[in-house]
Nucleic acid binder design. Structure first.
Lengths: 194, 194
DNA sequence: GCGTTCATGTAACCTGTTACATGATTCT
DNA sequence: AGAATCATGTAACAGGTTACATGAACGC
């Protein structure tokens, strides 16, 4: 249950509203963490009950009042305690790789289309991360941590993008036609008909 | 909801019991897909209701009867239809990167320990995948898909292992001591005291 | 004797997603 | 005129985890 701690970490650098937190997650840690506003509001209520954050309502006109949350001493202690807890690493879970695994039962044209879309996505994020990486940052411990996070993000996207390109090539009709010639029996896909 | 389809794909290559499926997931697709037996039994019941699998009970002595599930024609159609659906890619979600992001609020010794453990995990899996990759496979479409899946698994683990090594180095006390000399103010961690 | 494997399932719980609900202001 | 942004929240549902429950056989 690291959403709680992700919120506390974010509040460690300054007070924020639930709305701000949602944006913050989206703009800064989205490579490795995401949360919807409904999750965040639910979690903030729990954190307030536990006394790890405190809330202050700021009146506004025309829109609902902002409720700005600050981390408390108890919250800071919780963060430190959490950093000593074992990590629960969420392993890769990939829809597309399941399809690849059962390749012979799939619609190959559709899979190629999916691959193209994924490649685009990885390239977009690679460009995004590269832009962030090029902005110079101060030489602090905080910045060091963020640089390391960005670094694995960059490599991850680069690796996947490359893999998508190679896989598109491997699944090209020409390549599969070659394969079919070698095969004793041909699978039932559109390609064999063409 | 791809668990349903992951099951159908697995059953496409032969009938299996819920127990077998759990083992199968664990042994063959665990890099990109996992499921517990309780999930699998729940899903198999739903698939049977929909007529996408059929069940046959095989009497056994001493242990509960095996219930072996086979994919039906309706199930095969469902798989093909699924392969045309857009992929819902589960994005990276990483506990440890959240900690790195809030590095200055963490217990650095604990983080280094976590890194060492993760490095071990990545190396283990890298070795595991390498062993599988070295086993020669026939030149079929099915094998091509699996090779591509294995390939990204290998690269993923290699990249992460390398990153862990580099990050351990970046977070070493010596390296951080250098950093502290440059800093105008020092963070409140054990290191500054030492 | 003790842990593991085989083999099924249920129930409670936690987390995350999607949709619903409201309503003024600002940008295109 | 219509969409997006600001800003809060609730409710229903889907998916995944953990623990409970049972019990024989087999290897160490």
């Amino acid at each position: 249950m690291a959403l709680r701690d992700a919120i506390l970490v974010s509040l460690s650098d300054g007070a924020m509203s639930g709305y701000d937190l949602a944006k913050h997650f989206d703009q800064t840690v989205s490579f490795f963490w995401r949360a919807t506003h409904s999750q965040i509001y639910r979690e903030l209520a729990k954190l307030k009950d536990k006394g790890q954050v405190s809330a202050e309502e700021i009146p506004q006109r025309g829109k609902p009042n902002r409720i700005v949350y600050s981390i408390t001493e108890a919250g800071r202690n919780a963060v430190l305690a959490w950093s000593r807890q074992p990590c629960v690493q969420d392993r890769v879970k990939d829809d597309f790789l399941v399809r690849l695994y059962g390749l012979e039962h799939m619609d190959l044209d559709a899979l190629r289309e999916h691959l193209v879309q994924r490649l685009d996505g990885h390239r977009d994020r690679l460009a995004e991360f590269t832009a962030i990486a090029n902005a110079t940052e101060p030489n602090t411990i905080a910045a060091l941590g963020r640089r390391r996070g960005l670094e694995i993000g960059l490599r991850y996207e680069r690796e996947w993008a490359e893999w998508c390109e190679e896989t598109l090539d491997a699944l090209s009709p020409e390549n599969l036609a070659d394969l079919n010639c070698v095969l004793p029996f041909t699978p039932t896909t559109k390609e064999e008909v063409a």
